[in-house]
Design a protein around this nucleic acid. Structure first.
Lengths: 245, 245
DNA sequence: TGCAAAATAGAACGGTCGTTCTTTTTTGTG
DNA sequence: CACAAAAAAGAACGACCGTTCTATTTTGCA
């Protein structure tokens, strides 16, 4: 929560490149970006614990040993701070979960790697909290740029999972007529149930259950073992087909 | 969100029965309980939308066309108000989801009914929000009586689902060696994924996916079709067995 | 080293929050 | 109808919030 490098690209300050030095009047920009990155880092730590909505500039300033206005000046608004936090989280998620999985070969191995990395991260977040989950609840029906940033970030990730499943299908490692969206949905559910039951309810064994659930999903959508009765999984349950949504 | 009857038992006011009339000095209690129930009803409506933490006495007073202190006096603290809301939600959930399913016969039919009723309610909550989900995020790591009330309520419900699954096992309608906790976990995941993807991401088709997922689970844990290769579902994935949690 | 620009601090603002008091109104029954 | 108890209103509190404005300090190149 604090060992990460400054990561330069914090946000929309230096639009035109010049990757360092020279502002309009030949002036270097450095210290600002640096402390801003440190602030975002601390803010991310706070936000994962108490949520993006709970994140207050006063508390953040205290953690940073700075004045409220000093912190505030870096962002110009609380919303921009929240968005910066989301961007930072997105980047870290990408580097910890997504990119490493790309080094596994396309198809089932990559799908497994994506889930394994996701699980690793979620296991940590059982203690720390997860912005993608708490943020979803906080910005459920609160439109605006923060919600958009959050939703886009999540959608990008879920699309990556879906894409990996489709690739596994194309390579003949999963049933060709299986529904990749269905599989991604069920995997997402496992992660959410893990987070809920382990972090909130403190149920032991949740991590093992999520892993087992993933194996169960693979064994149903894969066509190795026992591909007998059901293809394309099963029809929806008879009784409830709510026309809504 | 407002058509429900007063439901008398609001909370810890009239401990000793006398189901109506006569306080300590031979005085009837009526108007108070009545408006208190109305306040809780309105509070529940607000809390499902903006969360238990977002629920403010000022906003609630405005909705009720009352003064802040007038509303406050009924609860004595914000925490007690939140707990009252949780109790009210618990009762409604019980009456809409749990009790009706008890009229189905023990075993698989009751499991199906529980899930169907749960889905019906969740489908509504895609628009309104759900306290069990938002509250879990808000009180993740915030100990206290509110968290306890919420967690106990959820645990009661999840235990009921688990019990129904075990009964279906005992009646030979599911694999005897299947893990009932695993099945309950996966079902819970479907509901959470539905809520997340439909309410936050606005993905269409989520309801159908949750229903399909349930059918998939049944077809794996049930022993009718294709009970070939895997019993007790599958072993956890090899790579990640995090000792934590 | 001087000096402008950038970064930070400090004080104050209007607003909302939960809560506490005191006062007024409403209620229900003897 | 009277009258005490219950319910509701009203005003004020201290605390924190995001934000604005002005002053001070720090920074980094000429």
């Amino acid at each position: 929560m604090s060992a990460t490098p400054p990561s330069t690209k914090t946000s929309l300050a230096n639009l035109a490149g010049h990757s360092r030095l020279t502002g309009a009047h030949g002036r270097a920009v450095q210290k600002g970006q640096q402390t801003k990155a440190a602030i975002v880092d601390a803010a991310l730590g706070l936000a994962t614990q108490i949520g993006l909505e709970g994140l207050s500039i006063g508390a953040l300033a205290e953690v940073m040993h700075m004045s409220k206005s000093g912190v505030f000046a870096h962002f110009g608004s609380r919303e921009e701070l929240q968005i910066s936090v989301i961007r930072e989280y997105h980047d870290r998620f990408e580097h910890e979960v997504f990119y490493p999985a790309l080094e596994e070969e396309r198809g089932l191995p990559r799908v497994r790697a994506l889930f394994a990395n996701w699980m690793k991260r979620t296991s940590v977040e059982i203690d720390s909290g997860c912005i993608y989950i708490s943020g979803a609840v906080e910005f459920d029906d609160r439109p605006g740029p923060v919600r958009d940033a959050l939703a886009n970030s999540v959608k990008t990730w879920l699309a990556a999972v879906h894409r990996a499943v489709v690739q596994a299908q194309e390579m003949g490692q999963l049933h060709a007529d299986a529904d990749a969206h269905q599989m991604a949905f069920e995997i997402h559910g496992l992660i959410l149930a893990l987070h809920y039951e382990a972090r909130f309810l403190k149920y032991p064994g949740s991590i093992a259950r999520a892993n087992t659930g993933f194996a169960n999903i693979l064994s149903r959508f894969g066509h190795d073992a026992s591909a007998s009765a059901r293809r394309k999984s099963v029809k929806p349950v008879q009784s409830i087909r709510n026309p809504k949504e």
